[in-house]
Design a protein around this nucleic acid. Structure first.
Lengths: 354, 354
DNA sequence: CTGAAAGCGCTTACAG
DNA sequence: CTGAAAGCGCTTACAG
């Protein structure tokens, strides 16, 4: 009896290619044909059970699902995506998710997208442009169906390429007249102006800056300085630190600032972290906040204002940004082709000094 | 002249299947064959330029790279992954990245993995087990080469399935004697004990709890209560809140707690957020912290201790967890088959009261 | 409501 | 150092 065939065909993986050269393949190497064979239908029908169940007869549906359950079959989306040109993947390019700022946005963005059947590929760009450019290749190699960007994309070549890909793009957390596609953000420049105005209204004589040198922080700086210049304050003391900003840098930046300009009576910090660090330094130096030194931060951390009532801060609604960005992408997938553009604004929060 | 052929063949997409039924396909629909044709090599050579450049002659390498650059070709990893059974994808299953706790871990994990050529698929599980189970299917459909889990996986069926897939798994942020595979974490139970001990050493008479009802917080609660019971304190007042914990819940939980047990002189809160919220409430109630009421939090936020020196807190090194988890996975990919298991411990931090 | 054929864009395993 | 053939596991576009 040569070439005896296997007897137990219940989980028979015949049909496996003759040379069987590829051993691996995730989740037991189960394929759609295995499910199809067991359920007595064609692979296409199994495919439809996952992707368009309404088009399958209830009984067939049930039978296939039983087999899927029994075998523990999980479709291979690498194959599915390749075949359908639909990866069901959204790329989110973010400088960092540590220390909050963007984490709330990514959180709700991810929740909203996954409810709609998409997953989020997280790409951390740090704060360098060159990095962002090479990151884009990595990201595009997964053929995402949409992209969330943090900030308005910097280099023209990146913007150009993103436009060429032809997938929806949402820029967030910043503002521009010429977005690549869609935008949910706010103006950092106007925030700087608003904080300057607040300081002026409070009668501050010598406002100063502590900022990290990233694009958005520098835009806030520009708005701040321009507004002060309008009021005749053309020389503004400042300490510029390397991103990412941290408690420690804020802490060391304040003494440095005051050393060069001892009469400073208000500081606009590039982030809540820097502000909290500066406040710690102020405490150590015996400075009363805000009476001797007003401190203003920036961010979306309830934390900051809760723990530090004497802090003024600019609050941004990171949650709304994330939800809106997701909605805009999903609308596109549903054929809505408007060019969504939203300024979510900001608010300057100042607690009553207790 | 019927069937005239196109003249300009410089970016000629001939070879495209006759029926051309699939229009889409990302990044201009450029395929490896387009690059190969332009460079005068076979597709396999182009593939090697990306995946194993050392095996290609320097001149060929250069020529292919020029064409890639010129055309703006980005390989399709859906196809590559399907063909090679290597997705270069790592799944990270995390309850949430908002409000920090895990965000630092994910940040450094993602950085480390991407430096090694892997991308991170972020899957947010919330705090429900059932969710985690269905999330696993979604995640496995991408055929990740490794999985990072937050916490020790709950249901046995999930553990079972994960083991069957045969890819490396790292559980983090918790401790168990029977991990699925590898583990980088610490014992929540022992943290509870340690905080109880600290309170006892300080002579607290009536320690209490404010915790969210997630598995890990409840483990801390158990350690806390057991240790107090050893000291003869068998009745411990507590308020249990629904996760995720927040400032607001902490704020409302404290009055509730004190209403039922006015003599409480120490509270162990399930997280820094809860603790900060509770501190806010204490302030409003005119309670001195820590002299009248000691408050202890939990987390990895510099923030908490910096802004709130009167807070005692349990600190965990989220960064180390992320880096170690990444290293363990990468070791596996490099053929190191040890079953890595690390207890990173924790520390109770108490600032000198100023 | 269901299926046979062809193809998605890569890489493997040889062979030279 | 380079390439021709075959296959990875799905889905599309028909047709019935």
């Amino acid at each position: 009896m040569p070439t005896a065939k296997p007897t137990d065909a219940s989980i028979d993986l015949e049909g496996r290619t003759a040379s069987a050269r590829r051993t691996r393949g995730g989740t037991k190497g189960l394929r759609i044909t295995d499910v199809a064979a067991q359920a007595g239908v064609s692979p296409i029908t199994v495919s439809r059970v996952f992707n368009n169940p309404a088009s399958v007869a209830p009984e067939t549906l049930e039978r296939v699902r039983q087999v899927v359950q029994k075998l523990g079959y999980v479709p291979n989306r690498l194959a599915g995506g390749l075949s359908s040109a639909r990866s069901r993947l959204i790329a989110a390019i973010v400088p960092t998710i540590a220390h909050s700022l963007f984490s709330e946005t990514i959180q709700v963005f991810s929740e909203t997208m996954s409810r709609a059947g998409y997953e989020v590929l997280l790409a951390l760009s740090g704060y360098s442009d060159t990095n962002e450019e090479s990151l884009l290749d990595t990201v595009l190699s997964r053929r995402p169906e949409g992209v969330l960007l943090t900030g308005v994309a910097h280099t023209e070549s990146l913007r150009e390429r993103l436009r060429n890909v032809g997938i929806p793009v949402v820029e967030t957390w910043d503002m521009t007249d010429t977005p690549i596609d869609m935008l949910v953000g706010f103006s950092h420049y106007r925030i700087g102006e608003a904080v300057a105005e607040r300081f002026l209204a409070r009668g501050m004589k010598r406002p100063a800056l502590i900022v990290a040198s990233d694009a958005r922080a520098l835009a806030r700086r520009a708005g701040f300085r321009d507004r002060l210049a309008q009021a005749g304050m053309t020389s503004v003391a400042e300490v510029i630190v390397a991103p990412p900003s941290s408690l420690a840098t804020g802490k060391s930046a304040l003494p440095q600032l005051l050393q060069g300009a001892p009469d400073v009576d208000a500081v606009f910090c590039g982030s809540d972290l820097l502000a909290i660090g500066a406040l710690g330094a102020a405490r150590q130096m015996g400075l009363q906040v805000p009476s001797q030194l007003a401190v203003c931060g920036f961010g979306d951390l309830d934390f900051a204002t809760e723990t530090t009532p004497q802090l003024t801060t600019v609050r941004v609604d990171g949650t709304r940004i994330g939800v809106s960005a997701a909605r805009f992408l999903l609308d596109r997938f549903n054929g809505v082709h408007e060019r969504a553009f939203v300024d979510v604004g900001f608010s300057v929060v100042e607690r009553e000094s207790a």
